[in-house]
């Protein structure tokens, strides 16, 4: 038994008949082919699957596709506009905010929401805002740097200094 849903994903209207038990993350990955959203756990802890639903960060593994019917969904693939990276993506690149990259899409989406809540977040607010996202590679410092940078803050004078080149 399927249910027809209409969802706007990264600005594109989509319509599909889906099983009610289909998770939003599987809908995005398997039905829509948007594999940038990752799966790291099954208990709503790791946050790798974070996307924006109607502008709010949610864990797409803990939402049914049918619950997203009528919603506007933004995934990591929809963040860059007109070929230029979103400031949070830029921040992650500039500050070495990622290593293996697996948690990164979810981290970036969480970062986008942090900046929606706080124009000038403190490092503590960023850390608190990332509570729902696990990273096993970076140790988080560069991730916080990245979001701070995206917020327009000058990269803190920490550790290796100097301008980043490339």
């Amino acid at each position: 038994m399927t249910q027809t849903i209409r969802v706007r994903i990264n600005g594109t209207a989509r319509e599909h008949a889906v099983e009610p038990r289909l998770l939003l993350v599987h809908y995005l990955r398997e039905v829509c082919g948007l594999t940038g959203t990752h799966i790291g756990c099954e208990t709503s802890i790791c946050g790798a699957c974070t996307v924006l639903v109607d502008g709010k960060a949610v864990k797409s593994c803990t939402m049914l596709a049918v619950q997203a019917d009528g919603s506007d969904v933004t995934t990591i693939e929809g963040l860059a506009r007109n070929g230029s990276l979103h400031p949070v993506q830029e921040g992650f690149w500039e500050c070495h905010g990622l290593q293996c990259g697996y948690c990164t899409p979810g981290m970036i989406m969480a970062g986008v929401e942090i900046l929606q809540r706080h124009a000038r977040p403190t490092r503590e607010q960023i850390a608190e805002g990332l509570k729902g996202n696990l990273c096993r590679c970076t140790g988080y410092v560069h991730i916080i740097d990245a979001i701070e940078r995206a917020a327009g803050a000058r990269r803190a004078e920490r550790g290796v200094g100097g301008d980043l080149k490339w």
């Binding site: 940038g36 860059a80 690149w93 990622l98 990164t104 290796v160 080149k165 490339w166």
Partner: peptide
């Protein structure tokens, strides 16, 4: 010796890299 940003990153931060599940 320079703190250079990574060439790996663009595909990863755009969500267009390919992991096994992809």
């Amino acid at each position: 010796g320079q703190p250079m940003k990574r060439v790996e990153d663009p595909r990863l931060i755009k969500g267009i890299a390919t992991y096994v599940d992809d």
